[in-house]
């Protein structure tokens, strides 16, 4: 069973899909290219956490290393989760500024807020994580441990 979450109001971002997983939350994210996929996956997680902020002025520059693009995706989302869960950062914009198979640079824009989160995500898992091309788009399915 799946359900589609709407795209954000500016209409430039892709919607994502929630997938049922007995213990956890699964998300299917699509984007027009791999760089956008990392951004869209970040937005999807921010949405599930209830960690959006409009607008924000603070910026966090991030540099992530991974073993390959799947590991890079997990570590990227773990890093966003850390800033939201531990540092209290709330996100208005995510921009991946540079990307290779094993490195990512990005800027998170937003601000620190004391608003409670909607859900606790313990971790971003590697479980059956794939990134594939489909219908001229790039798609990933990620299981979040909640």
């Amino acid at each position: 069973m799946e359900s589609l979450r709407p795209a954000r109001e500016n209409g430039t971002k892709m919607p994502y899909t929630l997938i049922d997983h007995t213990a956890d939350i699964g998300i299917r994210v699509r984007a027009r290219n791999i760089q956008n996929l990392y951004e869209e996956a970040g937005y999807a997680m921010v949405d599930i956490l209830g960690a959006s902020l409009q607008p924000g002025a603070e910026q966090i520059e991030m540099r992530i290393d991974g073993l390959d693009r799947i590991d890079l995706l997990v570590r990227w989302l773990q890093e966003i989760l850390y800033f939201i869960g531990v540092k209290g950062f709330r996100v208005s914009d995510i921009q991946v500024t540079a990307l290779t198979e094993t490195n990512l640079s990005a800027v998170l824009t937003g601000g620190t807020a004391k608003t409670p989160l909607a859900t606790e995500i313990k971790a971003v898992t590697y479980h059956d994580l794939t990134i594939r091309e489909i219908d001229n788009q790039v798609e990933t399915i990620i299981i979040l441990d909640t």
């Binding site: 069973m1 359900s3 929630l18 049922d20 997983h21 007995t22 213990a23 956890d24 939350i25 909640t146």
Partner: peptide
């Protein structure tokens, strides 16, 4: 043991 997802 769960049988329904949290969303269900």
């Amino acid at each position: 043991g769960r049988i329904l997802s949290r969303r269900q």
